[in-house]
């Protein structure tokens, strides 16, 4: 099994990499962070008997992605699974962020994901089953003031996954969207979760459980995975309550925790 993972040297990317290596899958890892990729390749190779190849790449840059693809084609690598992990968010309201940052969210979370997905689907092993995973977010379940761009970008991935899954189901491609709540991926993330108090503890998912279930569900051909009971209940509210009411509640909640988050971070 050959797996390509984007955003591999971030917290979730690393955990998925370890999960796949433990299952004996061969890995092609990419990320914009070259040093992180090298450290991760070392860590995996010292622990598991799998082949790990890496290449740093800025997925928002067409030329850089072409370079990555040329590299794959030189070796004729075909894939059985693609894990779209690369994504980001910037803290702060829409007007408080720079225009560049707002567009980077869309450029990476949406455009870059489509770019690499299209390219890797064209390089899948024909006649074999292919698993395509999008890391969406619990934020895809409702519009979120103060995280408006991020939440909408994750909604895009969720809707796209549903539609593409239907489109490709007779072509041996299974599409899964994963919608995790908080994940402890960085020191900032830990501070952010702590700032949310009991909410943070409740909606935070255990990353090692999410990664294991993600691969299990991708292999089983599931469509959507929302980890944790608390998050599934929150998601249900998202479907039942009027969107205007949800945005009002969420605005209050994020105003409070962003303030605390900035305090802890300082």
């Amino acid at each position: 099994m050959n797996v390509l993972i984007t955003g591999a040297s971030g917290g979730l990317g690393r955990a998925l990499t370890i999960e796949c290596a433990r299952r004996g899958y061969h890995l092609f890892l990419t990320d914009i962070n070259k040093t992180g990729l090298e450290s991760l390749r070392n860590g995996v190779e010292r622990q598991f008997p799998v082949v790990v190849a890496t290449m740093a790449c800025d997925l928002t840059d067409d030329t850089d992605v072409d370079r990555l693809l040329a590299h794959l084609d030189t070796y004729g690598i075909q894939f059985d699974m693609l894990l779209n992990v690369a994504g980001l968010d910037f803290e702060g309201g829409f007007l408080e962020q720079s225009r560049k940052n707002v567009l980077t969210i869309v450029s990476l979370n949406i455009c870059a994901t489509l770019r690499i997905t299209h390219a890797i689907l064209s390089r899948r092993a024909i006649g074999k089953s292919f698993s395509l995973v999008f890391v969406s977010s619990l934020a895809s379940q409702y519009p979120i003031p103060l995280k408006a761009t991020y939440a909408a970008s994750k909604r895009f991935l969720l809707d796209f996954a549903y539609a593409l899954g239907e489109e490709l189901k007779n072509r041996h491609v299974h599409v899964l969207a994963v919608c995790p709540g908080g994940l402890v991926t960085t020191r900032d993330a830990m501070d952010g979760i702590k700032a949310q108090g009991i909410w943070g503890d409740m909606t935070t998912n255990r990353i090692e459980v999410v990664t294991r279930n993600t691969i299990d569900r991708a292999l089983a051909g599931k469509l959507v995975y929302i980890p944790g009971i608390a998050n599934r209940i929150l998601s249900l509210f998202g479907h039942l309550l009027p969107r205007t009411f949800i945005t009002m509640v969420l605005y209050k909640r994020w105003t409070r925790s962003q303030g605390k988050w900035l305090d802890i971070g300082a």
């Binding site: 690393r14 955990a15 990499t17 450290s39 991760l40 070392n42 860590g43 995996v44 402890v184 990353i207």
Partner: peptide, 12 residues
């Protein structure tokens, strides 16, 4: 001490 499973750059 960590409350959750989290990894270093090496994935440790």
């Amino acid at each position: 001490v960590r409350s959750w499973y989290a990894t270093t750059e090496e994935g440790y």
